[in-house]
Design a protein around this nucleic acid. Sequence first.
DNA 1: GTAGGGTTAG
Length: 615
Amino acid sequence: MKPIGVRPAAAALSWCRSLPHKHGTCSSLLLLLPPSVLQFFSFGFRSTASNPQFRRIDFNNIKKLEDALSLFDEMLRMRPLPSIVQFTQLLTAVTKMKHYSASISLYKQMGALGIPINEYTMSIAINCFCHLSRVNYGFAILGSFFRRGVVPNVATFGTLLKGLVLEDRVPEAVNLFLKLTRERVCEPNAVIYGTIVSGLCRTGNTSRAFQLLRLMEVQGKCKPDTVIYNTVIDGLCKDRMVDDALTLFSEMIEKCISPDVVTYNSLIHGLLNNGRWNEVIRLLREMGSRKISPNVCIFNTVVDALCKQGMAELAEGEVLPMMRQRRVDPDVVTYTILVDGYCMRGQMDEARKFFDSMIDLCLVPNIITYNALINGYCKSLKMDEAMQLLRELPCKGLKRNVNSYTSILQALFRSGKCGAARNLLDDMQAAGVVPTTLTYCILLDGLCKNGRLAEALSVLGMLNSKGIYLDIAVYTAIIDGLCKDGKLESAWDIFYNLSSKGLTPNVTTYTVMMNGLCQEGVLDKANQLLVKMEENGCKPDDVTYNTIVKGLLKRERYREAMTLLEEMRARGFSADASTIEIVVDLLSAKSQDPAQLEMIKRILPTFKHGEKSIE
DNA sequence: GTAGGGTTAG
């Protein structure tokens, strides 16, 4: 795609960014002028009378790009030229076929030929740039509105806002939205509000989205509709605030805004994430009484929840027949979830069976389906099968993505094949696939765990020098690697300086650091860290407790170990197998001091029932 | 007459 003028883009963007809040500027005033006045400034385009010949053309019948292009050429040869409306219909047809670049090229030709482009045509061009993730070029077209004296309207701005959101530029979208309202450039409608609300939810600002919903209610000009409620309810569910979502749900019903299948799906999804099956059943019944039929999304949500709880067979045996009975066809997503569900349980034959059966059902596996299967083979360390699938992807017209590579990378490191892993990483980068922080985490952790600490540190240095963002998991892997290599001081140094990197240690980081301290017998420091992590708002988990208890037991500090075991128990954690093993070993040791033996025996009741093998 | 269309599942 050839870039079009960058200057108009910059001008339009700066208009959007830099308007003073209190007073309008010339350009904002320009927007408020009536079209008749603006026409005065516009270029003198040739007037084109509508051509009756083209009234007969059904633009919806255009099926291929070539049809549209030859029709365009034919239209250009007509005298008089067909009307702008007919040209716009043609552009719509091309755009609906998702040939965005072609649509833009036609738009440019129209401009060059002096066809009087209007706000409809220009909005189509903006929309095409947005779909190509080039919203800045969309703003360039906004600039040409001004030059041509065409007045952008709510549809134009709606398209631009959507384009910003698509490029994750939500703060800019919000600013533009605020300016439009403040300067009264256009009256936002439900779509504009919907775009902003969804952008806010998608970027973790659900509370702001909620506020906007409230504002819509208070202002009363554009009342929130089902879609707006759905968006906020879904955002709350994704933030694990299901009860708030349920409250908002009751509220919409009270206000006579009908929930639909999307509302129910978000709520069901949120409830299932918390294992609240009873409430899900209640909602499903309620849907029935409202005559809302569950669609394939709802079923997929249920299938996914079952699979995540290791019940792929139940999903296959119960839910699939139920779907067929209700004439809801399982789709690629359904099958992908089931493939993944069997993969997670290591049932690769079942997973493969499902994958292969998709062809018979005319379902085409996509990259997510392939990645699920690749990941399954990797988890089972069936590397030949995984590599075979990776090779197969381009033949199926699918593009390998970072997930395809990362699964295999992790499995290669787990199998100790560091060389092959590094080669794969090179292949991946050569293919232009950008690593994520997870990729780097797997790389550094893999190197550390395979005794290549020096290499890991050198890669870390290289990544840092390139300014690549690395998350806490990467540093946790490095701290662990250093500790296990006996470099406790270096590990502590990194741990201590995490906050200077803007990173906050999580429960794993603390546990890894404590484990290092315990190994070196620096138990008091480990104990202090246990207190400190809670002060910092990070709750220890069962691994943390087991780590310290084991450290204490190994250094014969039974009394402290016992205190901690009791604390664990009070918090609902239990000793793990390796901790129990240490206690068993201590009990069976021959040369045991009777007083110590007594102490160890007193530890026993702190274990829960069912943790046998102690007797 | 012609444009944008916001929400759910892997």
